[in-house]
């Protein structure tokens, strides 16, 4: 007699349910809405509409611009910081790393509000430099997401590899360029994917900094607010496509660098 019908497999049921209800089903709904019109008929109009409407394309370009510059700024700030932290012999290293990460634990609207006040005081009015302000806000917000994976990959780098490079005649700069930098690539990619994509959609930062230009996130929001489920779903699907593409590309590089310790 089996008194207990409960097996190890049963433990997976809640997760499977969750997956079906909150991941698979919404995704299917999303795909359904993206490829149908108001009458429930199959159509590609949402797709073609997106790529033919100068407004949506403009938003895409602007989002890309914001995201690219934000990612660039984050990378430029994060890499040296992560490198110095990971290679230093400081005993209080983990405390400093914590200091970099701590802003993540403070509510981000609070932080952006504080930034808004500072920028207003510095610039007089936020209206003069909306793009700059947005980039600053987002960089401030996303910096920890860039530092952490880079810090992890550099910390895990085998010191013997650098010694080997030096031993084989490379100066400090050459050793960095030929060994540290390529081997920290998985961390960089992981950081980029954690900054670039959110930066394309996080319109709350724009709203709070009085930047009225649309980015992808605000665009989706506006479609949904106007009860245009179909157009909004298509844009969401397109963004999902970009994420998948990016992850796929990153995988390829990470497989080459099996030693990388990136977060993603």
């Amino acid at each position: 007699m089996h008194r207990y019908m409960f097996s190890r497999k049963s433990l997976g049921i809640p997760y499977a349910l969750f997956l079906v209800l909150f991941v698979m089903a919404p995704l299917l709904v999303l795909v359904y809405f993206a490829f149908t019109n108001g009458q429930g008929e199959f159509t590609l109009q949402n797709l073609t509409g997106f790529f033919t409407d100068p407004n949506t394309l403009g938003t895409l370009c602007y989002s890309f611009g914001i995201a690219a510059v934000t990612t660039g700024v984050c990378l430029l700030l994060a890499y040296p910081a992560a490198y110095i932290l990971a290679t230093s012999r400081l005993k209080a290293k983990s405390v400093i790393v914590l200091l970099f990460i701590m802003p993540m634990w403070i509510n981000f609207s609070l932080r952006i509000t504080a930034l808004k006040e500072i920028l207003t005081w510095l610039e007089g009015s936020l209206a003069y430099h909306p793009f700059l302000n947005t980039v600053l806000g987002m960089s401030y917000d996303f910096l920890p997401f860039m530092i952490l994976p880079i810090y992890t990959t550099i910390s895990k780098l085998d010191g013997a590899l650098l010694e080997a490079a030096r031993d084989l005649g490379a100066g400090e700069l050459q050793a960095f360029l030929k060994v540290t930098l390529p081997l920290s690539l998985p961390g960089i990619l992981s950081g980029v994917s954690m900054v670039f994509l959110p930066a394309m959609t996080n319109y709350v930062v724009l709203d709070m900094l009085y930047n009225s230009t649309y980015i992808m996130g605000s665009l989706i929001g506006s479609y949904f607010a106007a009860y245009n489920w179909h157009g909004g779903s298509m844009i969401a699907l397109l963004l999902l496509g970009i994420v998948c593409l990016f992850t796929f590309m990153t995988r390829g590089i990470e497989e080459e660098n099996t030693r990388g310790g990136a977060l993603l």
Partner: peptide, 8 residues
């Protein structure tokens, strides 16, 4: 000791 070959 543990070779330290460049994995990339």
């Amino acid at each position: 000791q543990r070779y330290a070959l460049f994995p990339h």
